[in-house]
Nucleic acid binder design. Structure first.
Length: 357
DNA sequence: CGGATTTGACCTGCGC
DNA sequence: GCGCAGGTCAAATCCG
């Protein structure tokens, strides 16, 4: 059986393509199987001389700033990942990217990308030609292996042995049911960005082709199996790649650091959406990162996938107006596009710096 | 002392 | 089948 590969492309390519054209191209070619998302290609093309780690606004990174499509249509193409994307890291300045990445795609990506070898990560899904493939992302991966009874039996026996050495009752047939992932990059000096949730580090691994280790965190909330990985881009040490996996099954924690507005909108299939600014959060950002990406693009990302499921969840809340409670309208997206997001959200200093690079 | 982190071992998936 | 790399576990250690 051929491994399912989504026609996804990480927005990371925007940057990678810049510094590693060949790899990016390869990623695009191999990963997308030729069906390169318009957004992706457009983004790559238009951002060819930019450095997302420094001057690109989020929308730029999304390839929106001078694209012809509008946000809604863009996100309509996303696959609804049943995850609750975390709020933007408190120390981040730029939610640099991303979306549903396919393992191969990511691995195909140059350095930084290679540090995010995720399968079925949430990423800016290049307008999947076939919308049905949309819903497949992680689910497909999880279901592409029909368990057999033989396997079940065999597995049960093995379980005992396994538990002796390691508590890994995973069943073969369950083929590591992975949660959809959402990865994004941020420019930060600290590795573990404070996103408001409580995380417990459970592992660290050296990453191939990267001098920086990858840290593994799990949400400490009982019953919440959300994980996240944090690693630095080997390409740009100032870039932190954070990958979230899973969906928080609990309210957004009220941390002593400051309250975080939560809108437990029951209508949202995506869990709480954050609607209020986080003063503390912003403060941190500014302290740690002068290049504060101070405004999330407003996107009307509520959409319906081919499967009919609400797509609201497919877009990380922080891509929505979590911090600034800006009405998520397509017009705002277009506004950003029309007027140049950078001007509004990226400090002049930053833009200047980007040019010098 | 309890919770968090570190770290080496182990497991799993994948490519060759 | 083998080796590699990613991911996870859990004992040891650290820290408030």
């Amino acid at each position: 059986m051929e491994k399912k590969k989504e026609n996804f492309i990480s927005m990371a390519n925007l940057r990678f393509s810049d510094e590693n054209p060949s790899a990016a191209a390869a990623a695009a070619a191999t990963s997308l199987g030729g069906s390169i998302f318009d957004m992706a290609t457009g983004a790559v093309a238009c951002d060819g001389d930019t450095k997302w780690g420094s001057s690109l606004g989020f929308m730029d990174l999304l390839g929106i700033h001078n694209q012809d499509f509008i946000a809604p249509s863009l996100f309509d193409s996303f696959q609804p990942p049943p995850i609750l994307p975390p709020p933007p890291p408190s120390t981040s300045s730029e939610p640099l990217l991303h979306q549903q990445l396919d393992t191969k795609q990511l691995q195909a990506l140059p350095s930084p990308a290679s540090t995010v070898p995720e399968s079925s990560e949430v990423l800016n899904n290049p307008a999947t030609p076939n919308s049905s493939s949309f819903s497949s992302s992680s689910n497909e991966a999880a279901n592409d292996h029909e368990p057999t009874k033989a396997e079940d039996d065999e597995e049960e026996e093995q379980d005992e042995d396994k538990t002796k050495k390691q508590l890994k009752p995973k069943k073969k047939n369950q083929k590591r049911q992975r949660e959809p992932r959402f990865a994004f990059m941020t420019k930060s000096e600290v590795d573990h960005l404070d996103d408001g949730y409580r995380w417990r580090k459970y592992g660290q691994k050296a990453v191939k082709n990267s001098p920086f280790p990858r840290s593994y965190y799990r949400c400490t909330s009982a019953g919440c199996g959300v994980k996240k990985r944090v690693e630095r881009s080997s390409d740009d040490p100032t870039i932190v790649v954070t990958t979230y996996e899973g969906q928080h099954k609990h309210p957004y924690p009220i941390t002593p650091r400051g309250s975080i507005g939560i809108n437990m909108d029951p209508s949202s299939s995506f869990g709480p959406s954050f609607v209020a600014p986080q003063p503390q959060y912003l403060h941190q950002q500014q302290q740690l990162q002068p290049y504060l990406y101070n405004s999330s693009p407003s996107l009307n990302i509520t959409s319906i996938t081919s499967s009919g499921s609400s797509f609201n969840a497919s877009i990380p809340d922080f891509l929505q107006d979590r911090r600034f409670n800006t009405p998520p309208t397509s017009s705002s997206a277009s506004l950003l596009r029309d007027h140049g997001l950078l001007q509004d959200i990226v400090p002049t200093q930053m833009r200047k710096e980007a040019k010098e690079q």
